[in-house]
Design a binder for these strands. Structure first.
Length: 271
DNA sequence: AAAAGGACCTGGTGGC
DNA sequence: TGCCACCAGGTCCTTT
């Protein structure tokens, strides 16, 4: 479900409600996420105060007194702020009960997400330490993409969806960014000029920034922690628009598959 | 080292 | 109504 804008939307939504709150109880209903939830997670977290909620790529980092809970929402995960007595429903796998009588509830039908506890710096965790730069920082530039892509034959779409190259760009925003940069998604990453990578880096930043401002993209079921849908789906130019006219030139949007993911593009606008 | 494909899961949709 | 194939906001791991 969530790419960078959706995770950032959730982060902003939960932050004011959880900062300074103590975790009074942890309820694990189903520990079988992508990696097993630590059976002793409750002992790790109980009575600790949440000091900050950060985001690294698509990971949420919930900083507590003596460690950090690293949460990834996978493909179908939601993080919802609920009142403590709300009955659990299907796929409600984990609750963090807070001292303000609210709780953070993780719901994830496909269970591709995870909730990991670390007492080290989370940025050094094996899942995070090799991640590429944040796209909305100045570390992420066309020059960076150009250098990292030299000699590589994979397609530019697969290249920018690789979190070791740049974090947070999933299938929706890869499609949208390539359209905004007028680059054909199947072009080999190693054969794209610096000038065009400058356009692509600018497009990625602009698309993600706008999506954050719109509260993310709600295609089916994304919502923030308060249950609000996003609005960026109204701005989509190509994603899920196969056969519909390009908003620039009117040609029908094409769809193909790349690495088992749906790709959408305009044959005329993107070269 | 890089590329390709499978693996992990549930649920929704569309065709017959 | 049922059954089946295929698709879905991700990404790690194994094999080539």
């Amino acid at each position: 479900m969530p790419e960078l804008p959706e995770v950032e939307t959730i982060r902003r939504c939960i932050t004011p409600a959880v900062i300074g709150q103590k975790v009074t109880e942890v309820i694990i209903r189903n520990p079988n996420l992508r990696w097993p939830v630590l059976p002793t997670l409750s002992d790790c977290l109980r009575e600790q105060t949440i000091s900050a909620v950060e985001r690294r790529g698509k990971y949420l980092l919930i900083h507590c007194g003596h460690g950090t809970l690293i949460v990834h929402l996978g493909m179908s995960g939601r993080f919802l702020l609920e009142v403590v007595n709300k009955p659990a429903e299907k796929h409600d796998h984990l609750d963090l009960v807070l001292s303000n009588a609210k709780m953070l509830r993780l719901n994830d039908p496909r269970r591709f997400g995870c909730a990991l506890w670390t007492e080290e710096s989370p940025l050094l965790h094996p899942l995070l330490r090799d991640l590429g730069p944040e796209p909305l920082t100045e570390d992420f530039t066309g020059g960076f993409l150009f250098e990292r892509s030299r000699g590589r034959s994979l397609t530019v779409k697969e290249f920018i969806m690789n979190s070791r190259i740049v974090v947070g760009v999933g299938n929706i925003y890869a499609n949208e960014s390539l359209f905004a940069a007028k680059i054909h998604p199947t072009r080999p990453a190693g054969r794209i000029s610096l000038q065009r990578y400058n356009q692509l880096a600018t497009a990625v930043k602009q698309v993600l920034q706008t999506a954050v401002e719109q509260g993310g993209t709600t295609i089916r079921d994304f919502c923030d922690a308060a249950g609000n849908a996003g609005y960026f789906q109204l701005e989509l130019q190509v994603y899920k628009r196969a056969g519909q006219p390009c908003r620039i030139c009117g040609q029908p949007i094409q769809t193909i598959r790349q690495a088992h993911r749906g790709t959408f593009f305009c044959r005329k606008c993107q070269r």
